[in-house]
Write a protein that binds this DNA or RNA. Structure first.
Lengths: 331, 331
DNA sequence: GCGACTGTTTACAACGTTGAAACAACGTTG
DNA sequence: CAACGTTGTTTCAACGTTGTAAACAGTCGC
């Protein structure tokens, strides 16, 4: 069922059918009605492969992120898919596992498929390599910061957000505030930014640092790292975890050790994943405006796709807010 | 950069380049080497729109599910994407929100884009409507059961799994076992199956039923429905929630009410989402083999796509296992 | 009644790819 | 040595769409 079939049945040329389908203005009412009738009867759908071949567009964008089953990314993906739907784009998701090879593959595989653009959450891949890429597919970096990056970028102000959380903990009167989530295996993760914010706040109040490292932002690593912090003497009376998953893992360790949250140890995360709203105690966190992040990312991509090449990279910020809950306030 | 460019530079015909790209056997070693050199130099990538137009395939399948940010679906998606990657398929994700319109739209929108196949987790859409669809795109139903369905289908044995959980609770000596998660707004959800399994087990032991209904399988609804169960007199001493999200919501309500899990109320879910492994207490659940589900779904789809049309629908089962944790056993 | 103009419709080519068929060069076979 | 098969390569057409340009019909002004 192609334009040709419709044209034959309606007794007009293929191009006229195409004009009707595309809402071209100068088609006589009678012709339009006749064609539309046949279109409806046969339930015509354009063949997008052909249309895209002709137009040089695919109508598909890729979203490349470390892992879809981390709640933060799942929630974000939802918004990206919704935002893309408004531009009638489909979204294919590529999982990189934060590995350099797979991040490259994602950019490559995606190139194979000639998507119109890529939204990438980089982790292992560095700024230099991204800058050096030869592919001219539109690219937007989402959620991580590569300083003076080679592509459009959108994120929340991670330094400030981390400082806000830390100050919240300081405001509770806690003095031994640990950070959980530093990393040294990522070329472009947010860990350094969040660490910087944490340090700023502590420095302003003359408090000492305690930093626990992890490799990945998973519950299991949060749980393990927390065990290390519990073994310290004196042990921390508050912990800022660099994301909610780490915090939930840490919470499990604290509670399983027979200690109380927040009475013995106050706990805060970052991401505002839904789990944290139903844990016991509920988890204090920073809520990035995920819908805004997604909307901006898609919008930057749209401008990049529609615009002329060679425009300088743009930097955009999405909002966030601190959400105090039971894990720092008690019930 | 097309085959034509490569052909010109290599001094051969377009078709010969195509043959090299596609690994056609009868190409002389010298020609092959010459062409491959140019291919590598120009970093040639086939235009998939053109290839798909010619071949009538797109290399893209759709995964339509209610919501990507429900952890079960996020985890499942991960496996589907991985399984599809082995066949070099990309996966576009469509979110239906469990709404009839959006499920139809997903099947429709997907047709617009001429994907090679669709994996659908139906919720609102009924068997009759699916059976009546005119589209001949390959379709596999995943995770929900439509009796004598019109398409290939894969799921775990929900009735048995629910019976296993209920028997586990009975085995703890609990006598007032409630079910949380019945639904009457879904034409093809699993709720009736899980309810049936729950009832079978109770009936075998002559125990009374208590059933709480919800509309959606979210934490908030689990929390709300649990409040209703707590108001009963006598209140239940065990609750089987039809999925883990409901159970985590219910757990929150129980603990916030000052009751203990499992001492006062034992709690079990179904899905084995990661959250349940780090809640306090950890959550007893049924773990469907998600990787197997995904693998089978993709495999059924592959057979459907490659096979002749008109084959009768197939029914496949994936494994599951009961995972007892603290919410029924204590620490 | 003629040219210019407007509105409507059409023919053609092209996007990049690949299956079918043709062809040339060669070796094998009867 | 003629017929045949094999290998390597090419030509051609087609997949379904849309941009360009041109054809066509009707209307207006003079």
């Amino acid at each position: 069922m192609s334009l040709r079939d419709i044209a034959r049945l309606a007794g007009v040329s293929v191009k006229t059918v195409s004009n009707v389908v595309n809402g071209y203005a100068h088609v006589s009412p009678e012709t339009r009605a006749k064609v539309e009738k046949v279109l409806a009867e046969l339930d015509y759908r354009p063949n997008l492969s052909a249309r895209n071949l002709r137009r040089g567009r695919t109508g598909v964008i890729a979203l490349a992120l470390p892992e879809l089953d981390a709640p933060y990314f799942a929630e974000l993906s939802r918004f990206v898919i919704d935002a893309a739907a408004e531009h009638r784009w489909l979204v294919v998701i590529e999982q990189t596992d934060g590995g350099l090879d797979r991040e490259r593959q994602a950019l490559d595989g995606v190139r194979d498929h000639r998507v119109d653009g890529v939204i990438l959450t980089p982790f292992a891949i560095g700024a230099e390599e991204l800058a050096a890429r030869t592919d001219d597919t539109a690219l937007v970096l989402l959620g991580e910061r590569i300083h003076d990056g080679p592509a459009d970028h959108v994120a929340i102000d991670n330094v400030r957000a981390a400082r806000d959380v830390t100050e919240h903990l300081i405001g509770l009167g806690r003095a031994r505030i640990a950070a959980l989530g530093a990393q040294d295996n990522s070329a472009s993760g947010t860990a350094p930014l969040r660490l910087a914010g944490y340090r700023q706040a502590l420095a302003e109040h003359g408090l000492p640092e305690t930093v626990a490292k992890v490799e990945r932002y998973h519950r299991a690593e949060g749980a393990a790292a927390m065990a290390g912090l519990l073994a310290l003497d004196p042990r921390p009376d508050a912990v800022f975890c660099f994301n909610d998953l780490l915090a939930l893992g840490a919470m499990r360790t604290i509670l399983a050790a027979g200690l109380r949250v927040p009475e013995d140890i106050a706990l805060a995360g970052l991401d505002d994943i839904e789990d944290g709203r139903y844990s016991t105690p509920t988890l204090t966190t920073v809520a990035p405006d995920k819908a805004e992040l997604a909307r901006i990312a898609v919008d930057l991509l749209r401008q990049r796709i529609d615009g002329r090449p060679g425009q300088p990279p743009r930097e955009a910020r999405a909002g966030y807010r601190l959400v105090p809950r039971e894990s720092t306030l008690g019930r």
